[in-house]
């Protein structure tokens, strides 16, 4: 009995341990949310979501924050982004600030962002050109004040290649940043 207890104690001390067990460098004082006990319904919901993620039955869509604006995107759609933006044509990008990711059956809502490794959104830059000429016309009547300003903004067209919910909810991500 005493040996079994000692063995269990040693297993328990691997992470905590007095002078640091073998793996104590992987335990931190900042306890992540996942290690707290979750009530039953939450567990069921998470298990159901993970099963659906494995099956990967339907299309995913995500709400992504890019250049100060939020866009609702799904696989294969085009996005036009205005303003100076360095990425060149043919570059493949990952859009990291995902606020919400969802499929036909469930949605993952981030507060404000979803967990970093959970959703992967890839996009390709297709074209970088200038918009049509926009005229900004100012006039003050009866004051001989009239100005015309012609402006063309840089526009980048992105094609969203894929939105994958790569990992399971509430488990440690496989691709940690």
């Amino acid at each position: 009995m005493a040996m079994i207890r000692a063995g269990l104690q040693r297993i328990a001390n691997i992470f905590s341990g007095p002078q640091g067990g073998i793996l104590s460098r992987f335990a931190t004082n900042l306890v992540p949310v996942e290690s707290k006990p979750v009530p039953e319904t939450t567990k069921d919901v998470i298990a159901a979501c993970n099963k659906l993620i494995e099956q990967n039955a339907s299309r995913n869509f995500a709400i992504v924050h890019l250049l100060g604006k939020q866009w609702r995107i799904t696989d294969g759609d085009l996005l036009v982004v205005e303003g100076y933006w360095p990425p060149n044509i043919g570059d493949k990008l990952t859009l990291d600030k995902v606020l919400l990711a969802a499929t036909k059956d469930f949605s993952l809502i981030g507060r404000p962002l979803v967990q970093p490794g959970l959703v992967t959104v890839t996009a390709t830059v297709i074209s970088k050109g200038l918009s049509h000429t926009r005229t900004h016309f100012k006039k003050k009547r009866r004051k001989q004040f009239m100005r015309i300003n012609f402006q063309r903004a840089q526009q980048t067209i992105l094609r969203i290649n894929s939105i994958e919910i790569a990992n399971k909810v509430n488990e440690a991500p496989k691709n940690v940043f």
Partner: peptide, 23 residues
């Protein structure tokens, strides 16, 4: 880097999807 004469037409929307609704 352009994909054609982009400045000759006014873009009505800045997005295009084939699947506007998933849920």
């Amino acid at each position: 880097t352009q994909q054609g004469d982009v400045s000759s037409s006014r873009l009505r929307k800045y997005q295009y999807t084939d699947h506007p609704s998933i849920q």
